[in-house]
Design a binder for these strands. Structure first.
Ligand SMILES: [Zn+2]
Ligand SMILES: [Zn+2]
Length: 783
DNA sequence: CCTGATTCCTTT
DNA sequence: AAGGAATCAGGT
């Protein structure tokens, strides 16, 4: 057991330092004067509600000595009773415009040690302003639940000998007044270096609890409460079976890697904000550059945070960091509250050099941050789709700015926002255009599905043939199809209606293994209807190919080659991911098929063929980033082959092979794609040329939702500064989700400031009852 | 004039 | 956000 922090002492006789208050009570009058004369400090408190104000409370005398910035406190709030909030400021005087009679007292301090520091307070305040949420909501995103409820700790009661009694015991005057058992108990307490509980003392002094009660009643000893960590052992790290290999000497650098390090080194050794974009093709060795940069950071006694998309947080990735660094914390989304709390504590304690994690790892409470790395910077999973709707990459840049550190944004296919920032010189660009060991980029062939005769089970003849060849040559095959399920729609041939989810305006997907229709939006299931729900026609047509159907096709076509499907249906159990990848790596499995989770950061030297079954999946979605996402996915997958000594082949099936997203991805030509895509964004003020705020109203009463958003749009339009443009209001692409109708309004402007001023008093136009309004700054999802 | 529902208002 | 007060619609 170890004491992790000091909690409220119950009967501590330590004198409390008196607050030194420069009393300038001249403007206190009458009864307010009495209030003010009670002394204390005035603290700004942000409550964990959607309440957009800092409320002032008074810390009474008994709390004055312990109140600190970043602690959580319990405060009375209106008629709601007592609520929890964060202390964000401590002042000698309350704000002048606040009648002192309204100021209430802080009831209790929850954390002996503040959960966050001043820099984190500043970061969250920025988030609240930028993403238009309350400060309290931003703080809630930063401090994990496990830390808030101190998961894995408990409060223990310990015995302490009062100083007078101890003195008397040391002088051996006390002993005369005590029985033998009592003396033994006091002696046990005085001799122990650590705090002892009642049962500890009983064991050591071989006495009963009654003896201790007598000593307490006589005032010779008293009790003290301390919060303890339950398991002091930290042997959950590293993962089982994972030898903590001695740090390996880094491999020799390629000229490009060396050049990248040369560009980074001054920033890594300095103390200034320095944003970089590392634009490196897949296989160019970006990760080695990150590792070397982190090494340099750690060597000067600073910590590094590495952000990686959740799906890339594979054992392979984690191993790479553990091999190189001793004190690594990995923060993935499946940690328990206790594990998360323990990691938070060790990071805050300075016991960790490198934090690797997904989105929320950007809030890791490092002590002396020296570097932030955001790998796969373009990934949309860095955007949180619930309040606060922050983008971890952008928060990373802001945090780097506040903490004066370099930040590295790495990608083979940078987001257009980041690319433009580099073009404008806001970010320094480091290019790594060639692969390590001079390996060529794989040849990518596009299969024009319009010319393919037989397209059974999603596979063209060309792709089938290529698979046979690859497998006959003892190579391995990866097939990507970014659609789960067996059939992606069920349609009535008579009336043309698609069977929809009962609660959403979405076509239901047929899952054969469960023989059910499942909604991919709300996960609701429904039985396969015996007849058309609209016109009662008895026969329904099942169409559209998902991974489950593709798997069946592969099993039939290649019965003697082991295949494995990897999507969120087959990877439900924790660890199955790892098992499947291990089976593929060992060569037992020859064909790996699945959704985009197979496209990330995996390195299989024996893969000689990668097939993209339907490159058009995301291309026609009603979203200005549809082409960008299609390009990114195809380009990422194309980089997954030819990493070993054998040359790789990539086949991409598409109905629109000449689309620049697909054609440029096939040529591994990022800049070619950018030259096409960027100009299409400029006129409509889409990102990166325009800043976008998206307002989404939703509710069960469709007319009510629509009416509210229309009225809101009207009032906003009336006071819109020049240069602000409105898109909508219109129904969202998915009109209904979980019985709620949704309408949205996009507001775009070349710069952020007019948007901000216009929306500053959005709270003056709140939605009516049973309608909710969501404000999404820099939206990623448009559905 | 009473009842339940809905909207408004405040929070330090 | 959430609770209480104020207001409203409709029935006796
Ligand atoms: Zn029908
Ligand atoms: Zn649904």
């Amino acid at each position: 057991m170890s004491v992790v922090n000091r909690d409220q002492d119950q009967e501590s006789d330590q004198p409390r330092p008196q607050p030194r208050l420069g009393r300038q009570a001249s403007w206190f009058e009458g009864e307010d004067e009495a209030q003010a004369e009670r002394g204390g400090l005035f603290v700004g408190v942000v409550v964990d509600r959607a309440l957009d104000a800092v409320l002032t409370y008074r810390a009474p005398q008994r709390l004055v000595a312990s109140i600190q910035l970043g602690q959580r406190v319990r405060v009375p709030l209106g008629r709601n009773g007592v609520v929890t909030g964060y202390c964000v400021s401590v002042d000698l005087l309350p704000p002048e415009d606040l009648p002192p009679s309204k100021i209430k007292d802080v009831v209790e301090i929850l954390d002996a040690v503040p959960l966050i520091d001043a820099r984190m307070l500043e970061l969250t305040r920025w988030m609240a302003g930028y993403y238009m949420c309350s400060w309290g909501q931003a703080l809630d995103a930063v401090v994990p639940a496990g830390v808030r409820n101190q998961a894995g700790t408990r409060v223990g009661t310990f015995l302490v000998v009062r100083p007078e009694a101890r003195q008397a015991f040391d002088d051996e005057t006390l002993q005369k007044t005590l029985t033998a058992k009592q003396t033994a108990a006091i002696e046990a307490l005085c001799r122990s270096d650590e705090l002892l509980t009642v049962s500890d003392v009983c064991r050591r002094a071989k006495c009963g609890a009654g003896v201790i009660k007598t000593l307490r009643d006589d005032g010779l000893i008293h009790t003290v409460k301390r919060r303890l960590s339950l398991a002091a052992s930290r042997n959950d790290e590293p993962a089982a079976g994972e030898p903590t290999a001695a740090p390996k000497p880094p491999p020799a650098m390629t000229p490009e890697q060396a050049a990248a390090m040369a560009a980074l080194t001054p920033a890594l050794d300095g103390d200034a904000f320095a944003p970089f974009v590392i634009f490196g093709v897949t296989g160019s060795g970006k990760t080695e550059v990150y590792l070397t940069a982190i090494e340099r950071t750690v060597a000067r006694g600073r910590e590094a945070i590495v952000l990686v998309p959740e799906i890339s947080l594979t054992p392979q990735t984690i191993r790479r960091f553990r091999r190189r660094f001793r004190r690594v914390a990995v923060l993935h989304s499946h940690l328990s509250d206790v594990e998360r709390h323990r990691h938070w504590q060790s990071i805050a304690q300075g016991e960790i050099d490198v934090v690797v994690g997904a989105r929320s790892a950007i809030f890791a409470p490092t002590r002396r941050l020296g570097l932030i790395v955001v790998d796969e910077e373009h990934e949309s999973t860095f955007k949180q789709e619930t309040v606060p709707r922050y983008h971890a990459r952008d928060v990373a840049v802001k945090r780097a700015q506040l903490e004066n550190t370099p930040v590295l944004l790495g990608s083979a296919t940078p987001s257009l926002e980041t690319w433009r920032n580099a073009e404008l010189g806001r970010y320094a660009r480091i290019s790594m255009p060639s692969r390590v060991e001079g390996r060529p980029m794989p040849a990518v062939e596009i299969i024009d599905l319009r010319n393919e005769k037989h397209l059974t089970g999603g596979l063209s003849e060309t792709l089938r043939l290529a698979m046979h060849q690859a497998l006959d040559d003892d190579g391995q095959v990866i097939l990507l199809l970014n659609r789960r399920g067996y059939n992606t729609f069920v349609i009535c041939p008579k009336c043309g209606q698609v069977v929809k989810c009962r609660h959403c305006d979405v076509a239901a997907t047929y899952h054969k293994n469960r023989h059910m229709l499942i909604c991919h939006t709300c996960d609701a299931e429904r039985a396969c209807p015996p007849a058309c729900p609209s016109c009662q026609a008895p026969v329904l047509h099942y169409g559209g190919i998902g991974t489950e159907r593709l798997e069946r096709e592969i099993r039939m076509e290649f019965p003697f080659h082991e295949s494995r499907r990897m999507d969120s249906d087959t990877m439900r159990r924790h660890g199955s991911h790892e098992v499947t990848l291990a089976a593929f790596k060992s060569g037992d499995v020859k064909i790996l098929l699945g959704t985009q989770m197979i496209a990330k950061g995996l390195d299989f030297p024996n893969v000689t063929l990668v097939g993209v079954v339907d490159a058009d999946v995301a291309l026609h979605l009603p979203d200005f980033r549809a082409a960008e996402r299609t390009f990114q996915l195809v380009a990422q997958v194309a980089g997954r082959t030819g990493r070993g000594n054998r040359p790789g082949r990539v086949l991409v099936q598409s109905f629109c092979p000449e689309h620049p997203a697909i054609a440029n991805a096939a040529r591994h030509d990022y800049e070619g794609f950018v030259r096409y895509e960027l100009p299409t964004r400029e006129a409509p003020l889409a990102s990166p040329y325009g800043r976008i705020v998206r307002l989404v109203a939703r509710g069960k009463d469709e007319a009510r939702v629509e009416k509210y958003l229309n009225e809101l749009a009207k009032t906003l339009r009336a006071k819109a500064p020049p240069g602000v443009r409105f898109w909508g209001p219109s129904p969202t692409p998915i009109l209904k989700i979980r019985e709620e109708f949704r309408f949205h309004l996009q507001i775009r402007c070349a710069s952020a400031a007019p948007l901000r001023t216009m929306l500053r008093d959005l709270p003056l136009h709140p939605p009516p009852n049973k309608v909710d309004l969501a404000v999404d700054v820099d939206p990623i999802s448009m559905l």
